Amino acid sequence: MDVGVLMLEYLRQSLSLSAEDWTAIWLTLRLCLYTTLILMVIATPIAWWLTSGCSASRTAVQAVVALPLVLPPTVLGFYLLITLGPRGFIGGTLENMGLHHLAFTFEGILIGSVLYSMPFAVQPLQQAFTNLGRRPIEEAASLGAGPIDCFFSVILPMTKSGFIVALTLTFAHTMGEFGVVLMVGGNIPGVTHVLSTTIYGYTEGMQYAAAGRLSLMLLILAFIVLFVVYRFNRGFEMVKP
C-alpha cells in the first residue's frame, strides 16, 4: 500500500474522522482554493481602480463590494438560488442551451463564495494600494517600466503584506461560509457537502462529538488566520459601508 495512503488512514483514525468528513474537508479545500484564486484575479484590478480616484461610480462599486459585510448570507443565497436555478436568468439560459442549471452544484456554491468573500479580498488590497501611493509607480514609469513590469517589480513587492492578508482572509472566510452555501448548494454529499454544512448536520442529528471535532479544526484555523493578519498588517481593518 502507498505510504501516502497509510499516512492519511493513520491521520483519519487518530482524529476519529469518518470518510464523509474527509470528503467534506477535501471539497471545502477545493472551494477555498478556487475562490481565492478567482478573487485574486478579480479583486486586484477592482481594488486598484477604487484607489485611482473618488467619484460616484467608485463609491457605488465600493458599496456593492462591501454588501456581504452587512447583508445576511441567506439574502444573497436566495437571490443566487433564483438566478442560478432552472427558472432564473443564468440557470434558465443554460437550460435553453441544453446545459444544466447551476443551483445545487459545486459551480453554484463557487459563484456564491466568490461574491460573498469579495470584500475580504478587495479591501485589504485597496488599503495596501492606498498606502503605497502613486509616487513609486510614477518613478518606475519615468524609468521606462511598462504597466506589467511595474506591477510585478514595484507594486507587488511593496504591497506584499496586503496580498498575504487578502489571500488568508479570503481562504479562511470561504472555509467558514454556511448560509450562502446552504441556500445555493443545499447539503449534497460529495457535491456541496462542505465543512460548515457537515457541522450543521451533525448538530442537527445531536452528534455533538463529531461536530465538536470539526468545529475545533475551524476554531484553530480562525486563530491562525487572525495571527497571520495581525502579523503582516497590524493596521488592517475591515471597513463597513
Score class of each variant (00 low, 15 high):
Met1Trp: 05
Asp2Trp: 08
Asp2Lys: 13
Val3Tyr: 11
Val3Gln: 08
Leu8Phe: 09
Tyr10Leu: 10
Tyr10Asp: 05
Gln13Ser: 11
Ser14Glu: 12
Ser18His: 06
Thr23Cys: 09
Ala24Leu: 11
Ile25Phe: 11
Trp26Asn: 08
Leu29Met: 14
Leu31Ile: 05
Cys32Asp: 00
Leu33Pro: 03
Tyr34His: 06
Thr36Cys: 07
Leu39Phe: 08
Met40Asp: 06
Met40Gln: 11
Met40Thr: 05
Ala43Trp: 01
Ile46Phe: 11
Ile46Lys: 00
Ala47Asp: 02
Trp49Gly: 02
Thr51Arg: 10
Gly53Met: 11
Ser55Arg: 14
Ser57Val: 14
Ser57His: 13
Ala63Cys: 07
Val64His: 10
Leu67Phe: 15
Leu69Trp: 15
Leu71Glu: 06
Gly92Pro: 06
Gly92Cys: 12
Leu99Glu: 11
Phe104Lys: 00
Phe106Ala: 13
Ile111Trp: 03
Ile111Phe: 07
Gly112Ile: 06
Ser113Met: 03
Ser113Pro: 01
Leu115Ala: 08
Ser117Glu: 05
Pro119Thr: 14
Pro119Asp: 14
Phe120Cys: 06
Ala121Ser: 07
Gly133Trp: 02
Gly133Glu: 02
Arg135Thr: 15
Pro136Glu: 14
Ala141Gly: 13
Gly146Ile: 04
Val154Met: 15
Ile155Asp: 01
Ile155His: 04
Ile155Gly: 02
Leu156Pro: 04
Met158Asn: 01
Lys160Tyr: 14
Gly162Val: 00
Phe163Lys: 11
Leu167Gly: 12
Thr168Gln: 02
Phe171Ala: 03
Thr174Ile: 04
Gly176Met: 03
Glu177Leu: 14
Gly179His: 10
Val180Trp: 03
Val184Ile: 13
Thr192Trp: 01
His193Cys: 09
Leu195Cys: 05
Thr197Glu: 02
Ile199Ser: 00
Ile199Trp: 06
Tyr200Leu: 08
Tyr200Ala: 13
Gly201Ile: 07
Thr203Asn: 08
Gly205Asn: 12
Met206Gly: 00
Tyr208Glu: 13
Tyr208Phe: 15
Ala209Phe: 05
Leu219Pro: 05
Ala222Trp: 00
Ile224Arg: 03
Val225Arg: 06
Leu226Glu: 13
Leu226Trp: 08
Phe227Cys: 09
Val229Ala: 04
Arg231Met: 06
Gly235Leu: 13
Phe236Lys: 01
Glu237Arg: 14
